[in-house]
Amino acid sequence: MSIPVITTLDCKGLSCPLPIVKTAIAVKKLQPGELLEVWATDPGSVADFTAWSKSTGNPLIDHTAEGGVFHFVIRKE
């Protein structure tokens, strides 16, 4: 099994809609199957990333929260 490529995007400190907008731009540049990890601090981003993933069909394969920092992992479809 090959290890998927992971790109990191730091959206810490940014407010709506920038985390989701920057994520969408970053995902666009990926090849299908590649992963994007996003760091964010906007509390609204949890709901936004879930909705975005559902709407665009790029699965949110992991999300965790620690000390006010959210970590999302998205796989490009």
């Binding site: 709506c16 809609p17 989701i20 907008v21 969408a24 731009i25 975005w52 665009t56």
Partner: peptide
Amino acid sequence: LILATSAAAMG
């Protein structure tokens, strides 16, 4: 503009 950019992000 927030709605327009968010909608663009949603594809």
